[in-house]
Design a protein around this nucleic acid. Structure first.
Ligand SMILES: NC(=O)c1ccc[n+]([C@@H]2O[C@H](COP(=O)([O-])OP(=O)(O)OC[C@H]3O[C@@H](n4cnc5c(N)ncnc54)[C@H](O)[C@@H]3O)[C@@H](O)[C@H]2O)c1
Ligand SMILES: NC(=O)c1ccc[n+]([C@@H]2O[C@H](COP(=O)([O-])OP(=O)(O)OC[C@H]3O[C@@H](n4cnc5c(N)ncnc54)[C@H](O)[C@@H]3O)[C@@H](O)[C@H]2O)c1
Lengths: 218, 218
DNA sequence: CTCCAATAGAGAATTAATTCACGAATAATA
DNA sequence: TATTATTCGTGAATTAATTCTCTATTGGAG
């Protein structure tokens, strides 16, 4: 196997942390000051010890019999996820999915600041969508170098994904958030995170299938 | 911990299967008849043994020195994921994300057939989007019972997600694909799969952060 | 003030997932 | 036809993740 790089935190834990944040922001709205692992675990159907171990990754220290400070926990999780700093991003491919992402304001809470979008379709170029300018993809190399862009979001079709990734790499992007169902080839110092909705659909339908056959055999 | 139900296949494997399918459909387009684990593993930066174990879940049998039949492998994976049967689905919340999902034709390849969409906003109701009728959410309970609907897709805001889920449950839905950042409370026989894009963004940014600090300390 | 119940934290035990190691099969090649 | 390199399949070994167990702390009840 060729695991590109070894990151310190277990990935299952990293995947759970954002969901804790959801519960916590709700509690903050309800003006709760403290929360226990048990409470979070019950909300999310998880094991309290698992929650505690995950939270420990962020460096938080709790009080016995009380739990953790909700506000402090939010701050610590955000810091751990790298959501305490704003990162400038560009998005390439202003189609159905790209447009939806541009309109999703919540990403700002996670430090994601989409400064410009690109497309190659003349009908989409030189418009403004949800306050973000859409430029011709030809202007990408120039802009990405001029402004300091951390993250590139790929929402073009799979056939164009690699060429878009290449442009981003040339612009010294640090991370790529890839929604196209395509394995990208990038240098070792560029971090790629693939989002594949089909994975999630597969988990759902295969569970449904297993459940159905399970019932039949009982 | 309270794990609702125990499913036979390891979830990490289930999550990898759809990505294999991607490589395989490309190979099919290129008219390749056979493929080895080694090849798939190289494409996806995985370990060949891991790929072999995953594929074994589907019941496929390979030929030494040759590999697996591409077509047969595709069929077996699809069957395992429950993508060999069409499932009727409804989508509730025709906003930015809901619209994008309605326009994504590839889901049909995975057996997902979105027959009707619902919203509560009068401006969206009684229109047709990507060939799918959008009805008032009031008509949901009636329609869901009349037609046999397997899957409910939730793309409303988090504040409305639970009430929409309740409507679906009353309509005897079997599975819910939930895009709202909210833990849904449903009976044991309804399978919920949550999609949270923030999870994926968190993995990306935390890796970027760790990578940056790693470089600093070298 | 004392006891009780709830909780954090840390290490051990268990379970799950991945990786390794090796034998058997087989197509290509000499 | 014999040899070789490749690959599958499987059981063992290793590593990662989860769950259990126990101790210490502390706020609140009596
Ligand atoms: N829509 C969904 O719900 C959905 C779900 C899962 C995955 N995806 C994936 O997301 C990607 C986008 O999907 P979509 O439905 O938005 O597709 P889309 O066709 O609506 O949008 C693609 C956009 O990319 C632009 N584009 C194509 N090539 C380009 C290039 N070289 N440079 C710049 N722009 C380019 C097109 O002009 C178009 O505007 C696809 O890879 C798809 O597989 C989409
Ligand atoms: N847009 C994205 O990129 C994105 C990303 C991640 C998560 N999400 C999540 O997906 C969900 C939808 O996001 P969006 O950006 O499409 O929001 P949106 O506001 O564009 O769309 C929500 C739609 O749901 C409808 N709606 C609200 N309450 C309803 C009800 N009770 N019954 C029927 N319809 C109802 C609204 O009329 C609207 O059309 C949200 O929960 C959001 O957190 C969206």
């Amino acid at each position: 196997m060729r695991k590109i790089r070894k990151f310190s935190a277990p990935e299952p834990s990293m995947r759970r942390l954002p969901t804790y944040l959801h519960v916590l922001t709700r509690l903050l709205r309800e003006n709760r000051l403290y929360v226990s692992c048990t409470f979070i675990a019950n909300e999310l159907y998880l094991d309290p010890t698992q929650v505690r171990k995950d939270l420990a990754l962020t460096g938080i220290v709790g009080k016995p019999r009380v739990g953790y400070s909700v506000q402090e926990l939010i701050d610590k999780i955000k810091a751990f996820l790298g959501w305490d700093v704003q990162r400038d991003a560009i998005l390439v491919g202003v189609g159905n999915l790209g447009t939806a992402l541009l309109g999703y304001q919540r990403f700002r809470l996670y430090g994601l600041n989409i400064v410009t979008a690109f497309d190659k379709d003349p009908r989409r170029i030189d418009k403004t969508i949800f306050g973000v300018d859409v430029l011709s993809v030809e202007k990408l190399p120039n802009l990405i170098l001029r402004k300091k862009i951390d993250i590139g979001i790929i929402t073009v079709g799979e056939e164009a994904a690699q060429e878009v990734a290449d442009l981003m790499v040339q612009g010294f992007i640090k991370g790529i958030w890839n929604f196209a169902p395509k394995t990208l080839i990038v240098p070792d110092d560029v971090i790629v995170e693939n989002v594949q909705l089909s994975v999630s659909l597969g988990v759902l339908t295969s569970k449904m299938k297993l459940f159905e056959t399970e019932k039949d055999t009982v």
